[in-house]
Design a protein around this nucleic acid. Structure first.
Lengths: 332, 332
DNA sequence: GTGAAAGCGCTAACAC
DNA sequence: GTGTTAGCGCTTTCAC
């Protein structure tokens, strides 16, 4: 157990009285050695605390056992959850995660991608959060799995079932008596939001409720903006509704706060459903009914797919859709 | 601009009509070449889209331009913020971040550390979140900077000014008339919490208010547990207080919800101050008064320190203390 | 079942 | 100011 960690397989080979080739074979379980040799080599490795040099391996094999993860904002709980699960899944398979926080900044993203390429990472998991991937050319020749959003030329895709999510959210409120459900949606016209709206409309239709344009309100999808919009709505009093489907939890939270401050009872007078099942939804009172996106399954699907692509087991085009779930809580 | 990215400096050297040594010199700004040569080499690199192979460089130089970050939970906003800032700072200096989410699981952490060592990362930023670092032996010979908590044998430390934080929080409530301030603290006796409590006591002393043991309540520092404890307190009615200093924002949030549900007015009857300035504090109504830990400065200090250690410019023992700030909002 | 040796792409010492 | 070359630690072909 040498703390200096300066030994190579040459040293191990010498101590074990075999060649470096044999040591390498044993380490990589490549077969072609006797039981005793294996035993002997393993023991010496153990004894002298040998650690293989990943750079040498990488140089020789052109593999790095590293996966790059590009994400717009690690600070966003939804993305953080995916990273967490991905890290866990890939660690088990001997891979490390190189994090790239793009901050939705094109230049930063480019620098990150350049770094990833230099490092000869084996694959990229692209948690997009945006509609458009501009750097797609630079990474054409390496395996990429996209999560959440799909750039036009993406081949491998992990999505969650946004249509169903919108449907479940809306249906829940209809079932509980709502007839005029406000759709408070992310103003950016991402595919995810479009699908959620489709689900919303499907639920209405199925229950004989017409879709009304005046019940669709767009806003930038953060708490502050949603508050402003809701404030206006409530103050003007012009928009009568008995339910709100907000396309994320922060917006739902904003609705709830504005309504409660205006003395409107939730869920008695107005019901609210959010989206994502971020942890705040359980920290409010009443707790927020919301749609869970299964970050765990999304991460696992992404991990499995990227590993398969790396092993060339599968290169065909594919989109995987992960089911969502309605979380019924206090606001409906 | 060749997408195959298969060229080495040998190719570049050939095309530019120089030796590989010269190409290497130019790439690394090592001097010893003429203006024209440099120009020529740079142009050919540009033209053929050459990307250096980090594995080869790493093998040769024993540097990887990678920093490992060990963190208990990327999902925690406080840690995520640090990662975000660290990523930004280190990217600018040409370093990548290998993320290791330990989940406070000893075995996972060990696997991660083993991976980091194999990858010959240049340094580790250890966002501990725990009191004890057990794997310290394995990483003795590589630069490590600890953030937030300090293991006994840590040399390089970035802390935030927890004493001052506790003081400011308490003082704010005293200044606004509180005399019986509940200390709702993380039950785990981390140094961070000890310091916050010292600050709390200092503020009391300074204002002639005696410290009362019955006003100190411990609990596991998450929302659910804090709720339980507060529920008990409020229901029993035995504990009269006019202010609460909670050692994190989740606990503060729990207090507020319980109190409001019990019909107690905030801040009129009871004032509350949290800790961390997590984003939820701005999503409640009233918004939560809290202490900001400057994650940005902590990350920058950590980044700067680790780079210095890597360049051997500084190896002395040191602890850096980052100032905190009181964020006055609706709950005081 | 095992070993010798070439070579991955790069840097740096040395020679000129 | 520039080129030649050894060698970083490993895998893998080929020979035995």
């Amino acid at each position: 157990m040498d703390g200096n960690a300066k030994l190579s397989i040459v040293d191990v080979a010498k101590r074990a009285g075999v060649s470096t080739a044999t040591v390498s074979r044993v380490i990589n379980h490549n077969g072609g050695y006797s039981r005793e040799t294996e035993e002997k080599v393993r023991r010496t490795i153990e004894e002298c605390g040998f650690t293989p040099n990943a750079n040498a391996i990488g140089l020789r094999t052109n593999k790095s056992r590293c996966i790059g993860v590009i994400v717009p904002d690690v600070t966003n709980e939804f993305f953080a959850k995916i990273i967490q699960e991905l890290d866990f899944y890939l660690l088990k398979h001997g891979y490390s995660l190189l994090i790239c926080n793009s901050n939705e900044d094109y230049e930063l993203e480019n620098m990150h991608i350049k770094g990833l390429i230099e490092k000869h990472i084996d694959g990229i998991v692209y948690i997009s959060g945006q509609n458009e991937i501009k750097n797609i050319n630079e990474i054409k020749h390496i395996p990429v799995v996209y999560i959440d959003r799909a750039p036009l030329n993406a081949r491998m895709l992990i999505l969650s079932d946004n249509q169903e999510g919108g449907y479940l959210a809306t249906k829940e409120m209809i079932d509980k008596g709502c007839r005029r459900i406000l759709l408070l949606r992310d103003v950016r016209c991402a595919s995810t939001i479009r699908y959620r709206k489709e689900g919303y409309i499907r639920a209405l239709k199925e229950n004989g409720i017409p879709y009304r344009e005046e019940l669709e309100v767009s806003c930038f999808p953060d708490y502050a903006e949603a508050r402003k919009v809701m404030d206006r709505l409530v103050r003007s009093g012009g928009c009568y509704f008995d339910g709100i489907f907000a396309t994320n939890d922060m917006m739902a939270l904003a609705c709830i706060n504005v309504l409660m401050e205006a003395g409107i009872k939730i869920p008695e007078q107005v019901k609210v459903v959010g989206y994502d099942n971020v942890s705040v939804t359980r920290f409010t009172s009443p707790q927020i009914t919301t749609i869970t996106q299964d970050t765990r399954q999304m991460a696992i699907a992404a991990g499995r797919t990227i590993l398969r692509m790396i092993q060339k087991k599968e290169i065909s085009e594919k989109r995987t859709i992960i089911p969502v779930k309605l979380e019924v809580r206090g606001t409906t």
